[in-house]
Design a protein around this nucleic acid. Sequence first.
DNA 1: GGATAAATGGAGTAGTGAGTCTATTATCGC
DNA 2: GCGATAATAGACTCACTACTCCATTTATCC
Lengths: 155, 155
Amino acid sequence: MLYSTTCSYAIRALARLAVIRPEGYVRITELCEGTDLPSHFLAKIFRDLVGAGLLTSAKGRGGGFALAKRPNEIRLYDIVDAVDGIKAYSQCVVGLAKCDATQPCPQHDQFLPVRKEIIAYLESTTLDQMSEALAKKMEILALAEPTNDLPIVNE
Amino acid sequence: MLYSTTCSYAIRALARLAVIRPEGYVRITELCEGTDLPSHFLAKIFRDLVGAGLLTSAKGRGGGFALAKRPNEIRLYDIVDAVDGIKAYSQCVVGLAKCDATQPCPQHDQFLPVRKEIIAYLESTTLDQMSEALAKKMEILALAEPTNDLPIVNE
DNA sequence: GGATAAATGGAGTAGTGAGTCTATTATCGC
DNA sequence: GCGATAATAGACTCACTACTCCATTTATCC
């Protein structure tokens, strides 16, 4: 997979946050309701995202986590960088330390276009696009199972 | 990174094997000489590659591991599939079980071209290309450090 | 100011991937 | 057949990622 499990949780949670309340505070428990997101673990991940400047937080009644920027200003790239570190994506595909044009690894040249495609994807995808797609999905699920008030979207 | 550490070892070792002796048996110790490949661990990995039909093995004097097919018939795809399992590449990028055209994850459509690029890369790259690139690299290193008989290529 | 509600911090646990080590088995040369 | 050689098998350790839990801190409401 492209991201770590932790990073997947972060992406899904942020997309959900943008859907539920793009501008206000959302509690962790509210965010995880009806999903398989592990709330305690997500709390830990969100601490880091606060530190990375992607989220702001407020304690006490009415508090929770809120996006630090507008959804269209948060790129997938920023989330991945905050959680996994983008450095991993620029390293040699076969894990060699010394790998450049003069000392190429067996895949160096071949892999360039793939890496470019991945980085372009991470840079061009923003949270508002993701939340829009997620909202559409939740809508479809709600129609498919009209008896459920809160569709389980993430299993 | 695109592959697991284990898979990187497999790729590097197979490329090396194809350079050293494309058709005969090579001992693990010989294969790891002058590299940072962990020989005991590689022995374990090679067992699996024998099971996957990429390598054949022979015990005793004169034995070792040899490619089960010609280098141009072994694709990067086959190696990755044998070690990491290609299934991981076809799964949803954010790790959702239910993710298809009707129930897309927030990244489903956007990620398609990236996935295609990765798969195309894995399918089009073969061991002979990789060994050729590696041989070229070893040559460059040998010229750069003419005092060394066995250049360390993989640190 | 007391009760409640939320994040925060950090210790602790579990499972997995990476790597080591040793004993066993098969093969070859003599 | 015997000794050397090399893969095979599996138990074991280590580190790291994923995840839990609880005590603490901070804020809000009454």
